[in-house]
Design a protein around this nucleic acid. Sequence first.
DNA 1: TCAAATTTTGAATGATCATTCAAGTTTTTG
DNA 2: CAAAAACTTGAATGATCATTCAAAATTTGA
Lengths: 196, 196
Amino acid sequence: MARKRIRDIRNEEFIEATIVTVHKRGYASVTMAEIAREAGSSAASISYYFGSKEGLMEATMRHLLRKLRTAMVAGYDRAQTPKERLYAVMDANFADSLFSVPQCNIWMQFWANAPYSTTLARLHRINRARVRSHFLAELGQLLPAAQVETARQALQSYMDGVWLQAAQSEGPLNAEAARRAAHQVVDLVTSSGIEP
Amino acid sequence: MARKRIRDIRNEEFIEATIVTVHKRGYASVTMAEIAREAGSSAASISYYFGSKEGLMEATMRHLLRKLRTAMVAGYDRAQTPKERLYAVMDANFADSLFSVPQCNIWMQFWANAPYSTTLARLHRINRARVRSHFLAELGQLLPAAQVETARQALQSYMDGVWLQAAQSEGPLNAEAARRAAHQVVDLVTSSGIEP
DNA sequence: TCAAATTTTGAATGATCATTCAAGTTTTTG
DNA sequence: CAAAAACTTGAATGATCATTCAAAATTTGA
């Protein structure tokens, strides 16, 4: 138990350091030594815990995905109607704990680099499929079948786009406002509808 | 004149090879040698023409920005009303010549990496400001002042998000459908409006 | 407490790459 | 056509890094 504890603590420290350092220096040019310095440790230690740089990046992405999934499930379970569940998906993406400049920035960098790493690509694919099916399930209850796919496209594009803009934002973000705007977008798309 | 000609031809060849190769191998790991091979030339030649790898990336981004600006200006000039001009901005982004998987992919990679390169960051900033001011100018004619900024946010997020999704698409894209959907998004946002 | 297990790290290793350079080839120009 | 200018490239250079390793430090467990 104690054995496991230390390993878990280190893992979290290194993952946190990875988020901070990738945000600061960029995925393309961040080095093990930089991440280690941020964590107050040495590059060799990271290899000891994660095996390789790629292993560290994978662990970091898993960590972020887990956070997102947790936020999503929490709201989803509480929601009663299809529209409330759509709100919940949006609210999860724009939750206070997730919708910050460094985290949106990291997401963007993982998105951009996922296609070139087998392990990242896998995680990425699974996550996309999950979000997609959530959207389709709820929209299917609210719109005629012919409009569902177009509406999904619109909502998901909007959601991704907001993160992308957030990643490039210079000031701090307003998560509450983002959620409010997202709800309105859901309302617009599901009430009047976008026709295919 | 002839002197200039050769340099221009080479530049275009190398930039085209850069787009193809970055798409294939990823911004983070593409090498000069790979780009040179794609162009049927040598890495040394790229240094001769562009000075450095960063110089090549900058030239490539400039090339893409020029293409986008050209498409934009063409439609913008033809448009008569504010709403038509909003359509024109969308149409430029989803023009047949721009809205392809490799180009959307490259854009995403440049977006992700721009903050970590002085020259890329500059280009990026200028472009964003330009798009932003176009949106604001037209929306200002169509909506009460209090709603303009929120509407801009929504439209620009949608636009960026569509590119992001396109970059990850597995099949070829349907630019015409993207334009149609974008027009509907413009209609929704400008008619009913998103309230701040 | 003390031996075994675990964790830490400085230094060594080896691979990768952008860039430079010198020696060529091709093209331009007068 | 010949000298000059422009272009090309293989090989050399040097810098940067991830990863490994062996030795030391710390923690665990009896």
